[in-house]
Nucleic acid binder design. Structure first.
Length: 425
RNA sequence: GGAGGGAUGGGAGAGUGGUUGAAUCCGGCGGUCUUGAAAACCGUUAUACGUAAGUAUCGGGGGUUCGAAUCCCCCUCCCUCUUCCA
């Protein structure tokens, strides 16, 4: 949610943002409703003042009986009018809120303007894609050969886009989660959390998935939603709270499964482990002081790339342009890992500064040390990393000519000494 | 799942229809005193909208009333007992 004051005072700024984002929201109607609301409130406040004065007079019995009855009758009419006005205000405020909730976050000046994902500029690269002297295989083929993933049975148990992960791949995935969490908690200063995986709608509204993107979520019959990313529960931990400034910055990390309906992605990445309804992810979330949230975004991104460097996986960082950046983000870096079978880099992490956009929705504030009004914190989130896609990257980048997979050095202790995944004999 | 009890300001806790936006205590902040501190004492200490007058807010929503923290209805959450359970 952006500050409605920005819309009132500088609607062009909001309109420009919408244009750059290729989004459309009827701002004029919001402003019209806002004006209308203000007028009614002004009128109503006067009526309420009168009502309060009358009630005071009636209560104190300073007026005689006849006059009192007349006053009561008069005030009753006043009450009816107030009731109608209050209802109208509620209606307008709901309408304004619902419309405001569809406006995406304003963009940071450093977010490039672009027409599509093809306009995302590359920021930097690390590592050299390996040159193979044999015919490389797709990770799905490698996994099938090694008997470490079973797609048909995953589908049998659940649905398409569910995969059964077995044996060494399951162990690898578990090793990755532990490795990532250990680095973030021990080296990067994050606190580890195990959040609920089912969330109420207020959480999803707080971080911006609702009301606009409900079709992307799995919903239970109880009205709870399966988390699409740990960003949601982690960011919402301090919802409706006023924090002491001394508490900032707050660094949180969690490994969770993530559930996404992937509506509208039919036919995309149907082969392999890239796009699943359920996938593991280690998430980083920061709640920070507004003055240094962009520095925090840089360090957050580095926290994620550190993992790739330790795993010796080549990657590049791109800045998402205005047409591709997420709804809640003002600035976002995608980290893409090298995927040999596709001969290109693929997204493995997305690191965003959501500024005060989520904080305003979720009402997360802090009391400044120097006193004065409480302010909204800035929230940031980033994957570090998507575990399933990291498995994909390791399978493909570390494949050997005999179809075995070399385990990255740092993971060997986590694999209880296993150095490569081979065919079981 | 069944029965009962509860939700008030940063915290504890009073308040069952009329200057109650809300007693009191603790905490916080400022001051007096002191070399400094403690103690004591004095003052102050919610938020939103509004230029202001003012209006709204006692878990959330609705209702009764001239007037609701106080009465009624619905919802959410918490506690106790009971039941079930990894």
């Amino acid at each position: 949610m952006i500050d409605i004051k920005i819309l009132r005072n500088d609607s062009k700024k909001v309109a420009d943002t919408l244009t750059n984002r290729k989004a459309e929201v009827d701002l004029k109607t919001i402003l019209k409703f806002d004006e209308e609301r203000k007028e009614i409130i002004f009128k109503l406040d006067q009526l309420k003042q009168l009502r309060n004065e009358n009630s005071g007079k009636i209560g104190k019995g300073k007026v005689d009986s006849d006059e009192k009855q007349q006053l009561i009758a008069e005030t009753r009419r006043l009450g009816d009018e107030i009731k109608g006005g209050d209802a109208k205000i509620r209606e307008l405020e709901e309408e304004i809120y619902n419309r405001m909730a569809t406006i995406p976050n304003l963009l940071h000046e450093s977010t490039p303007v672009g027409e599509s994902e093809d306009d995302n500029p590359e920021d930097r690269r690390w590592g050299e894609p390996r040159v193979f002297d044999f015919d490389i295989k797709h990770h799905a083929d490698l996994a099938e050969q090694l008997d470490i993933m079973d797609v048909p049975r995953g589908v049998k148990i659940a649905h398409s886009r569910f995969t059964l992960v077995k044996g060494a791949a399951a162990q690898l995935e578990r090793a990755l989660m532990n490795f990532m969490l250990d680095i973030h908690t021990e080296k990067h200063g994050f606190q580890e959390i195990i959040p609920p995986y089912l969330l109420n709608s207020q959480c999803l509204t707080g971080t911006g998935q609702l009301p606009k993107f409900e079709e992307d979520l799995f919903k239970t019959t109880e009205g709870l939603y399966l988390l699409p990313t740990a960003e949601v529960p982690l960011t919402n931990i301090y919802r409706e709270e006023i924090l002491k400034e001394e508490l900032l910055p707050i660094y949180l990390t969690a490994h969770t499964p993530c559930f996404r309906s992937e509506a509208g992605s039919y036919g995309k990445d149907t082969k392999g482990y890239i796009r699943q309804h359920q996938f593991n992810k280690v998430e980083l979330v920061k709640l920070v002081h507004p003055d240094n949230s962009y520095d925090e975004l840089e360090s957050l991104t580095k926290n994620a790339t550190d993992i790739l460097e330790l795993l010796e996986l080549p990657y590049r960082v791109i800045s998402l342009c205005s047409a591709d950046i997420g709804f809640s983000a003002a600035k976002c870096y995608d980290i893409e890992v090298w995927v040999p079978s596709e001969d290109r880099y693929r997204e493995i992490s997305s690191c965003s500064n959501c500024t005060d956009f989520q904080a305003r929705r979720a009402n997360i504030r802090f009391k400044p040390k120097e006193g004065g009004k409480s302010r909204f914190v800035h929230t940031l989130n980033g994957s570090a990393l998507a575990v399933g896609r990291t498995v994909v990257a390791i399978l493909e980048n570390n494949q050997m000519s005999d179809g075995s997979i070399k385990i990255p050095k740092v993971l060997i202790p986590y694999m209880r000494g296993l150095t490569k995944i081979e065919m079981r004999t």
